[in-house]
């Protein structure tokens, strides 16, 4: 039984919660035919997507997920509305709350902002990414992709590479993969490693060969240029040379290792275009597909509590 009122992060989930979400998501992922998975389990419920930060794929994914379950989905482009008028996050939350939504999907540029909002509303809140803190549905869809490809979600060696410091995806993935008892390696330049990260139960290296050695999964992160407030790397070409995933670096991983990327990709910066498009190695498109399934599962499980 899923006992949580909100999904604010991986941090508060038990391994059994994670398995339950993935099992449910699997039922939505088995067929690519959207008519076959269409349900009305959220019929009559209102889902509002509040994105205080630009997003194409995550917002679309949540919208499709909600609609396939019969929810009334509304998108609010927060940059264009009240924020500009100086309304605070909490006022916005209270205003929305008065309209009695059932599910609130929120992305915000500040760490902790989604949790703050969740304290002020009566509906279920789903964190669609808060600052550099967490992005739980991304970690869950990554987990589902790995589980389907590898047949299991434990005792795997997962290398997470690149801009760890600015990545909420990395934080959620480190926690999820750790909870499910996998070996996690972080690879990247030291300027892009958050201080104290080695205490998270991970191995840290700034050498791709060491980091990728015998890995089952290679997870590349986007270089978050918009979150950087100074020079973290000397140049993109040096970064690509040392940390960009190409065939030579990937050869150190297991022969059947899969390549993942949360998107959007900077081809030629953190990943070689050919690797990204190699259907034998890259599961990047599948991740997007699993995104819808995982979000359907999360919305449905949180929505059930509100029936």
């Amino acid at each position: 039984m899923f006992e949580h009122r909100h999904l604010l992060g991986i941090e508060h989930l038990k391994p059994s919660d994670i398995t339950a979400i993935l099992d449910r998501a699997d039922t939505f992922a088995t067929t690519p035919d959207s008519r076959a998975v269409r349900k009305d389990s959220l019929a009559g419920l209102t889902q509002i997507n509040m994105f205080f930060e630009n997003s194409t794929r995550t917002q679309a994914s949540f919208e499709i997920a909600g609609k396939r379950l019969g929810a009334d989905v509304m998108n609010m482009a927060m940059q264009a509305s009240s924020i500009k008028k100086g309304e605070t996050l909490i006022d916005t939350a209270l205003t929305l709350n008065a309209m009695h939504p059932d599910l609130l999907v929120v992305r915000h540029p500040n760490s902790g902002a989604v949790a703050l909002l969740a304290q002020k509303v009566n509906c279920a809140v789903i964190n669609a990414g808060d600052g550099k803190h967490e992005h739980p549905t991304q970690a869950l869809l990554d987990a589902l992709t790995i589980r389907r490809r590898k047949g299991r979600l434990q005792r795997l060696t997962v290398a997470i590479c690149g801009d760890i410091a600015h990545s909420r995806v990395a934080r959620s993935n480190i926690m999820l993969l750790g909870k499910m008892e996998n070996r996690v390696r972080l690879v990247g330049p030291r300027t892009l490693m958050p201080p104290g990260i080695e205490k998270f139960g991970v191995e840290v290296t700034d050498d791709m060969e060491t980091g990728l050695k015998d890995a089952d999964v290679v997870m590349m992160l986007r270089l978050q240029r918009e979150r950087m407030d100074g020079g973290f790397i000397p140049s993109e070409r040096e970064y690509y040379h040392r940390f960009g995933l190409d065939a030579a670096k990937l050869s150190h991983a297991k022969p059947d290792a899969i390549v993942m990327h949360p998107g959007p990709m900077n081809r030629g910066v953190e990943i070689d275009g050919e690797i990204a498009d190699d259907i034998n190695r890259s599961v990047i498109q599948e991740q997007v597909e699993m995104g819808v399934a995982v979000r359907m599962a999360v919305l449905e499980m949180l929505g059930e509590g509100r029936g």
Binding site: G112, G131, R171, P195
Partner: peptide, 10 residues
């Protein structure tokens, strides 16, 4: 800076 700030992403 440290483990806790890194976890909170602040």
């Amino acid at each position: 800076s440290g483990q806790y700030a890194s976890q909170l992403g602040l």
